[in-house]
Amino acid sequence: MKILISSSGPTLDAAFNPRFGRADFFITVDTAGGEWSAQENPGLKSGHGAGIQAAQIASQAGVEAVISGHFGPKAHDTLEAAQIRMFEAHGGSVADVVEQFKSGALHEV
């Protein structure tokens, strides 16, 4: 399954960032094969609607689920419209969060 995680850095050992629209990077991971890629968050420069923009990135990346710390109402609505599932994590590295997701430990919004 392809998932997107909000991150503080561009690698799997970077710290998970609980802010969705205002995260520094987004890391897309394929949980089956382990392939991953990182992209900078253009929403850091947005005045408004950073969460919406982040949800659009997730939709265009074709992920089935996103993992962050909190989803604002507009990000939530956008992800719901895009039929992307939302999971909440608390901390650790991006790799830790991926493992938590795979083990079913994360809470689904």
Binding site: G43, H48, G49, A50, Q56, S59, Q60, G62, D77, A81
Partner: peptide, 26 residues
Amino acid sequence: CGVCSEVCQSNAIVTLAKRVLVFPEL
């Protein structure tokens, strides 16, 4: 095609994989 979302400076119109969503309040 996503052109509307690219030109919007307010992130008020978003192009998802299967539909376009408008946020009137933005």
